[in-house]
Nucleic acid binder design. Structure first.
Length: 427
RNA sequence: CGGGCCGUAGUAUACCGGUAGUACAAGUGCUUUGGGAGCAUUUAGACUGGGUUCAAUUCCCAGCGGCCCGACCA
């Protein structure tokens, strides 16, 4: 509903081009493949632009997250990136947060470039929350956005896994009671699990017990196992639960009913986290309400983040082979990579026909219609782009009765008729 | 923010105290078309500033930028 994307694109019109050689100043796999494939462009360390293919993937991830946030009753907003200094003074973070970008205009007014949005959303809610009744009709009260964040990373690294400007989904929930908060918090645990399953890394992503902030003792992270990860976690395969190394101690293990010897150590990357904020941010702004008994009480809060770029980069990091990316169907920029080989008129005509048919059937297709490009180059691009299904039209495929289709994960393809081809998608 | 390595065409690289060679990409022409084609031809390059020197892309210093390790964080 929110985005409307085209479902067909001719590769001859795609303004990006693939690169044969990996950029030498990028060691990380995600950056190498995404840059070679023209999914992203590097502006500076930790800052990347998304190009057509990368943008499509990003939008798909975004929509999956949006759907899941809406399912739990989240209301989407877009908060400002510029945030007045005063709000950050109130929470003490103007001084405390050393990766805060501070900018000033010609009049000398100082503002923060939002690294997170507690300081923005809480003052807004102050205008609208005053009674317990505000929570009765509107429960859960959860507000989220998908937006660029800015953090002055001292060391941006690992391609798009740790940047200075990055896209994040951040949700904030507001509660009148601990019970209400806990109910919602637990719901978010399962929603997050669903999100990571839907983007294709559910099997290696674990709910992880982790250190909390200043107010809560603990929080929960979602950690995806990968050797490039910055974190170390201990996984209990049986329960599917993990514990971050930072809080891997007897107290925690007892609490979670886990046995130390059965936990397996892995490197992992944090793709999402959920926090119990209690009154950490509601208090400084005096976000409170009057309860049934006429008592004034401070609102309880939770916050829930997912870094979209990091998630995208993690998928590439985890799902690729020596030839390129292997996108899960759910977030691939297109479902089909249609290649037309050679310049025979019959081939061109058939390829055009298939291109039209796929689009008519609402199947997203990238059509490599380029002339004068060798088959080898087209195959290599297809492997690099990593679309789930490759469809080749050539004199050979026509001779064999149609179009040769091959999954990105398969070695060999098979020739099918156009009708059979379309049937694959009609399920 | 500490430490290390590095900055040469669009990309990847080479050589050198006397102004730079190669491959890919790009342009043109012809040929080629199932795993990054061939021939011919053209275009294009030393991060910035300072120092040493007759002469600096090369040596020295500083700045800026990049990557990696560490600390810190989604």
């Amino acid at each position: 509903m929110i985005n409307s994307t085209i479902n067909g694109l001719r590769q001859s019109r795609l303004f990006t081009k693939t690169r044969k050689e990996a950029p030498t100043n990028e060691v990380s796999r995600n950056a190498e493949l995404l840059i070679r494939g023209g999914f992203i462009h590097k502006e500076m360390a930790g800052v990347y632009s998304y190009l057509p293919l990368g943008f499509r993937v990003l939008k798909k991830i975004e929509n999956i997250i949006r759907e899941e946030m809406n399912k739990v009753g989240g209301q989407e907003v877009l908060l400002s990136s510029f945030q007045p200094r005063e709000n950050w003074e109130k929470t003490g973070r103007w001084k405390e947060m050393d990766d805060l970008y501070k900018v000033s205009d010609s009049s000398g007014r100082e503002v923060a470039l939002g690294p997170t949005h507690e300081e923005t959303i809480v003052p807004i809610l102050k205008n609208y929350i005053s009674s317990y009744k505000d929570f009765l009709s509107n429960s859960p009260l959860a507000i989220y956005q998908i937006q660029n964040k800015f953090r002055m990373e001292l060391r941006a690294k690992s391609g798009i896994l740790r940047g200075r400007e990055f896209i994040m989904k951040d949700m904030y929930s507001f509660h009148a009671s601990v019970l209400d908060f806990e109910k919602f918090y637990n719901k978010m645990k399962s929603v997050y699990k669903t999100i990571f399953e839907r983007v294709g890394i559910g099997h290696i992503t674990y709910l992880t017990f982790a250190p909390g902030g200043t107010f809560s003792k603990y929080s929960h992270e979602f950690q995806t196992i990968t050797s490039v990860g910055e974190d170390t976690i201990y996984v209990d395969e049986k329960s599917g639960v993990a514990v971050n190394k930072e809080v891997f101690n007897d107290e925690v293990l007892n609490q979670l009913n886990l046995i130390k010897e059965k936990m397996v150590e892995h490197k992992s990357i944090e793709v999402g986290n959920i926090f119990d904020l209690k009154t950490k941010y509601s208090k400084p702004f005096d976000l409170s309400f009057t309860d049934e008994k006429g008592q004034k009480r401070t609102v309880l809060m939770g916050c829930y983040g997912i870094g979209l770029g990091r998630l995208l980069g993690t998928v590439v990091e985890v799902l690729s082979d020596d030839k390129g990316i292997i996108w899960p169907e759910s977030i691939a920029p297109f479902a089909v990579h249609l290649l037309s080989l050679g310049e025979d008129e019959a081939v061109k005509k058939e390829a055009e026909k298939i291109y039209e048919s796929l689009q008519k059937n609402n199947i997203e297709v990238l059509f490599d219609d380029r002339l004068g490009v060798s088959p080898g180059e087209k195959f290599s691009d297809a492997d690099l782009f990593g679309l789930p299904l490759r469809a080749v039209v050539s004199l050979r495929s026509l001779r064999d009765g149609g179009v040769e289709i091959k999954k990105r994960t398969e070695e060999k393809g098979k020739v099918v008729s156009l009708g059979e081809f379309l049937k694959i998608f009609s399920k």
